[in-house]
Design a protein around this nucleic acid. Sequence first.
DNA 1: ATGGCGTACATAGTACGA
Length: 257
Amino acid sequence: MKFATWNVNSLAVRLPQLLDWLAANPVDAVVLQETKLSDDKFPQAEIEAAGYHVAFHGQKTYNGVALLTRGHLAEKVVKNIPNHGDDQARLIAGTLGNIRIIGGYFPNGQAPDSDKFVYKMKWLDALREWLRAELAEHPQLVLMGDFNIAPEDRDVYDPVAWAGQIHCTPEERAHFQGLLGLGLHDAFRLFEQPPKSWSWWDYRELRFRKNQGLRIDHILVSDALKSRVTACTIDKLPRKNERPSDHAPVVVELALA
DNA sequence: ATGGCGTACATAGTACGA
C-alpha cells in the first residue's frame, strides 16, 4: 500500500503532471496542497477518469487541498480542522479501509514577527488538539502534507543562514515535536536516507540544480502503523519537468496488515 | 542587493509563497 503527498502549486497548471505521475506511480491515496481552485473549478472528471475518487476543499487563488483515493471512496470526510474557525482551505481527511488519512497545507507563516506567524501557531495548536481525538478514534492514522516546517538542521541546505527564519524557528520545530509526542513518527526518518534530502527547492537562483532546498513536506504515521512502514522516499523526478511545482512528492509504502 | 521565480488576478503591478 502506498500513500503520497504533493504540493502541486496550482492544480490548474499541474493537472497534466499529476495525471502523468499517477500513471507512473499508482498510489492508493495522494493528498494535494495548493490546488488554488474553488470547488466549482476542480477537475473532478479528469481525476476520476484516471481511476481515482476524489474529495476536495478549495478556494480561489490560494490554498486548497484534495484527497485522491484509488478504487474506494474515502469515508467520513472532514474539511478543515473541526471547531477551528478558518476561512482558508487547508485540511482534508478521510478514511480508507481502516486507515485515517489526513492531508494538510500548513500555514507558511511568512516571518516570525508577522500576523501570519501568529495564525500559524494557532492553526498548529488546533491541529494538535484535534489530532489527539482523531488518534483516539482512529489508531491507524497517517498525517501527510506540506508542513512548512523543517524539523531539524539536517533538513535545511544552509542551517546557519536559515537559523531562526521561517520554517526553522524553535516555535515551529517545537510544534513538530509536539505532533511526534502524540504518537506519530516521521516516516522518512525511519530509514537511512541520502544526506541533503529536500522536498522543496526555491524557483529562484537555480536552487534545484544546486540541490539547495528544505525538507518541509512530511508523512507522519501513528504508532499502530509504524511497524508496517517499509519505505519512504522523495520523488525528485517531477521537479525536473518543464514548469514544475517547487515541491516534490513524498511517498510512503506500507506492508499489508 | 529583501531581489532573483512562479502563480493568480483588478491583466499591471501587487500579493504571496518558502
